[in-house]
């Protein structure tokens, strides 16, 4: 990976990896917001009606 003599920090390598950013940028909010939310929508119990 070394190009020239300079050392690059791991974070710099991460920020330069646009595909990794794309992947995380889609997966993280989809799981945290959408999947979790849909799980709550479809597991909501029915109103217990007192007859």
């Amino acid at each position: 990976m070394s190009e020239g003599s300079e050392e690059y920090s791991a974070v710099q390598k991460f920020y330069d990896n646009i595909w990794l950013l794309l992947g995380i940028g889609i997966v993280l909010p989809t799981v945290l917001f959408t999947v979790w939310g849909l799980y709550e929508v479809y597991t909501l119990p029915y109103l217990p009606i007192v007859k």
Binding site: L44, P45, Y46, L47, P48, I49
Partner: peptide, 9 residues
Amino acid sequence: ESYRVSAED
């Protein structure tokens, strides 16, 4: 707190 409920019920 929330539940599902049909319009008829």
